[in-house]
């Protein structure tokens, strides 16, 4: 389970909970990082979709990804779009998971040196969840 971090208020920008990805967002709300995993080539596809991004296979299952990775890149954004002002400056990291998945997260601690191991967490808003990351201690 991902550590739950309360942020509260509305998400700055709501993702669409579509047929192909709704389960991912529901799982994230419940503290699990799930995406599609291909039975054919045994690899993860993130963002989740019904077709494996590696082999094109359609036999894909929902599966939980590891919640630990390393920080590949980061920025602190001072100029942000309207909905994000309450959360500025935004500390954003590119995280590489060991399961060949790269994703974005809001960094809860800065600065974090690149290549440092990080642990993902669930940032809870009133209407959804974003992925966060902290230095792995």
């Amino acid at each position: 389970m991902l550590e739950r971090v309360h942020i509260g208020g509305p998400m700055p920008l709501l993702p669409r909970r579509a047929l192909a990805n709704r389960y991912h967002f529901e799982a994230l709300d419940a503290g699990r990082l799930e995406t599609r995993w291909c039975r054919g080539c045994e690899r993860f596809s993130f963002p989740p979709q019904n077709r494996c991004r590696h082999c094109g296979g359609r036999d894909v299952l929902w599966r939980e990804m590891p919640a630990e990775g390393v920080l590949f890149a980061q920025t602190t954004m001072h100029a942000v779009a309207d909905g994000f002002r309450a959360h500025a400056p935004l500390h954003i990291g590119v995280i590489d998971l060991s399961c060949e998945v790269r994703l974005l997260a809001w960094l809860l601690e800065t600065p974090i040196a690149l290549d440092t191991p990080v642990r993902l967490c669930a940032l809870h808003f009133d209407d959804g969840t974003l992925i966060g990351a902290k230095e792995l201690t």
Binding site: L13, F46, A73, T75, V80, I92, V94, L104, A105, L130
Partner: peptide
């Protein structure tokens, strides 16, 4: 990606900032 990247707030130039950090 509007559902998986834009929701974190990245603007066009912020992608270059990520490149810069790396």
């Amino acid at each position: 990606d509007v559902d998986f990247q834009s929701v974190y707030g990245l603007s066009p130039i912020s992608w270059y900032a990520l490149d810069a950090s790396r």
